[in-house]
């Protein structure tokens, strides 16, 4: 039997169509014994299904339900219909608005970003990086010249201010020089300084204090009697011992030079102080 005919037969036998349609169908298939038998069989199936309504008596009572309700916990919270309905509308709108705001707040390209860096104050102290230069000198930006030592010591009280110095101080700070990582590396690798400094200055025993550089944040901080603040030098807590245990004991402490913002009257250069030896025989410049 075709699927369509079978479905029609099922609809008829299960009484899903009006009676007159059933009678018309039966009249139309009066000579078709197979179809009539199929119809009767399907009708029997419908009546047999009614027999299945008989089920064994349940052995449950309300006490069992009550116990389970007590153990299951309290009623669920009522649903706020309007809130739920509005939520479906407002959630996509909120997401779209957030996306628009995020797009508007996206940082735009700024061509003169370097000029936005705030200028350093005139009292800022620079500790130059002792990096080896190509001509075999010590640091590219610092040279310690003993021939200027006397003049430099005489100019400690002088006031500061040449145009060149101001220009130098107002120059924007380069980010690489101020990164803590670079400063820490300078402190923890004394061999690099040791290899170059003795060529110019006679070697002096290093004091037993930690260099006056706070390696925690990388910012150079002068301290002690030599820098004019009247404070004794204090060791600053640093992770250096942990590193030193792996690297072995350092051979010598690094030489730290503090460049003052004041200008030496004789040399015209910035005054500088070598921290560990309290020496002012240091001149900035190549």
């Amino acid at each position: 039997m075709a699927k369509r005919n079978e479905e029609e037969l099922i609809q008829l036998a299960f009484g899903e169509v009006p009676d007159h349609e059933i009678e018309a169908w039966l009249a139309g298939h009066r000579g078709n014994q197979a179809a009539l038998r199929e119809f009767e069989m399907t009708r029997q199936l419908k009546s047999d299904l009614q027999m299945l309504r008989e089920v064994p008596e349940p052995q449950i009572n309300f006490e069992g339900v009550k116990d389970r309700i007590l153990s299951a916990g309290p009623m669920a919270a009522p649903v706020a219909k309007s809130r739920t309905r509005w939520g479906w509308i407002l959630a996509p709108l909120g997401a779209a608005a957030l996306a628009v705001v995020m797009l508007n707040l996206r940082p735009k390209a700024e061509p003169n970003l370097a000029f936005n860096v705030p200028s350093p104050s005139p009292n800022q102290i620079f500790v130059p990086t002792p990096a080896p230069s190509a001509n075999g000198g010590d640091a590219a930006s610092v040279a310690m010249r003993p021939d200027f030592a006397g003049a430099a010591s005489e100019g400690l009280v002088g006031g500061a201010s040449s145009t060149g110095l101001r220009a130098f101080l107002n120059e924007p700070v380069k980010p690489r020089q101020s990164t803590p990582e670079r400063t820490v590396r300078r402190v923890r690798r004394p061999a690099l300084v040791e290899a170059s400094v003795p060529k110019i200055l006679p070697e002096k025993p290093a004091p037993a204090v930690t260099p006056n550089v706070d390696i925690a944040d990388g910012a150079p901080r002068p301290s002690g009697a030599s820098n004019g603040f009247g404070m004794p030098p204090k060791p600053i807590a640093s992770p250096a011992p942990m590193v030193a245990s792996k690297m072995g004991p350092p051979k010598a402490e690094p030489k730290i030079v503090i460049i003052d913002s004041d200008t030496d009257l004789l040399t015209g250069a910035n005054r500088a102080t070598e921290v560990t030896t309290n020496s002012v025989d240091v001149v900035v410049g190549g």
């Binding site: 089920v55 389970r68 009623m75």
Partner: peptide, 30 residues
């Protein structure tokens, strides 16, 4: 219970389902 019995074919299952259904109905009445 009758519906559960027709679906599960077992009396104990049907009883359990019936009880559970009323428990859930009570809990979700709100």
């Amino acid at each position: 219970y009758r519906f559960a019995y027709q679906m599960t074919g077992r009396r104990d299952d049907a009883e359990d389902v019936t009880q559970e259904a009323f428990v859930r109905a009570y809990q979700h009445l709100p």
